[in-house]
Write a protein that binds this DNA or RNA. Structure first.
Lengths: 219, 219
DNA sequence: TAAAGTATGTTGAATTTTCAACAAAATGAG
DNA sequence: CTCATTTTGTTGAAAATTCAACATACTTTA
């Protein structure tokens, strides 16, 4: 675990937890670390959610797939970030998403009941972890509203421009990379891939954007 | 405040708080109660969010309105339920939604900093409130995934059927009322109102649903 | 109760999106 | 380096959505 100490220190779950107590605490929480290869399922859809996931290296993708195979990408999750925390904390009976590794990734899993329910050792960190979870879930809720802001637009063009403007704002520059290929961007924006490609070409011809693969510039 | 004790006891924010301490606690938290008339704005878009709202009577609607006036309805909130809690807890600099009273409604507002930061009186309830907030925000996150599940469908028909099936499941019956009129349902599903009306008629002719105003039956 | 205002359903035209198919470009494996 | 696979862009036809306009039904209030 020591190997990932730097990442864990940045993890919002461990905000205001002393570095010295972190490793001890992880043992107490029964945290495990596993390697998942590219395209492997970290958490399968349908099962009850018992664990909070933390990406230590690589990245994972949170997908919602319906009965006839339509995929919606909810988010990519990067080192130091959590996933499945809302469902775990709500003790959801069924996880409606699937979590897939984008690349070989080390993932830490922590049984959420070890966080929420005070242990016999009477550790003092539970309150801080619960506070941190509350903050983290609240912040993540805000990113969902942003997804709704994008996908509630009625046309491919507007969805794309709303998304690109958000990314530019986030990056702080008019030039930035997006974390999706075309199909993934289409699945995030909830539009048809070929129509999205056509719209990108159109915006380029109109001189509104410049783009090359997943690199974009707003003119 | 006594008048609303029964509602407050059901509010998830006060789970596991003794009835006897509730009123004292509300005073300590500086809770206020105000009446908002129909169509009045309870929380305006754009301002920093300092308060958590609790509906005591009536109901409010959470809307997202973009620069060119397109409205997306996020949810209706009913007595005993919270609103704006995620933005307040995340200490968001700007509230991207607007909260409007659907009818004359009594609303309690609590400054979230009074909950998150221990007061001088050293009240013992902060930890419980933070835990309750965490649970509440986690549960609400799940309802957002349900909204995404509905709106990510590509056609009006599929959005509508997904929504109706969810409502039926929630009601526990194939016959149920929905909390929206046509325009509101269209704004929730993120589709055109007239197209939605046409689709409802079509489903009725095909014998898939029966409906009258906001009363629906899945056949 | 009547009148005004609001909500709903219907229609057809214009616009968009989706779908399918394919070629070109890029990537990855051996 | 070459071949196989995946990704991307392009196109046209089919299907669906949006938009505008209007008639009817329903609500509200004066």
């Amino acid at each position: 675990m020591k190997k990932y100490l730097e990442i864990l220190k940045k993890c919002p779950l461990f905000f205001e937890i002393e570095e010295e107590s972190l490793l001890r605490m992880l043992t107490c929480l029964g945290a495990t670390i596993d390697l998942y290869d590219k395209k492997y399922t970290v958490m399968p859809e349908g099962k009850p959610v018992k664990h909070i996931g933390i990406v230590l290296s690589g990245s994972v993708q949170i997908n919602q797939v319906d009965y006839d195979g339509n995929r919606t990408i909810i988010a990519n999750v990067y080192p130091g970030e959590l996933f499945a925390e809302a469902f775990a904390c709500a003790e959801a009976k069924s996880f409606p998403l699937s979590v897939i590794a984008n690349e070989p990734s080390y993932i830490m899993l922590i049984d959420v009941s070890h966080i929420l329910h005070t242990c016999n050792n009477n550790c003092g960190f539970h309150q801080q972890l619960i506070f941190n979870l509350m903050k983290d879930i609240a912040l993540k809720t805000i990113t969902f509203y942003q997804k709704i802001e994008v996908t509630s637009k009625r046309s491919t063009r507007e969805k794309l421009l709303t998304y690109l403007n958000m990314q530019a704002k986030k990056a702080g520059y008019r030039t930035f990379d997006i974390p999706f290929n075309r199909q993934e961007l289409a699945d995030f924006l909830e539009v048809d891939r070929s129509g999205l490609s056509a719209e990108i070409s159109k915006l380029r011809k109109e001189g509104i954007i410049e783009s090359n693969k997943n690199h974009f510039t707003l003119i």
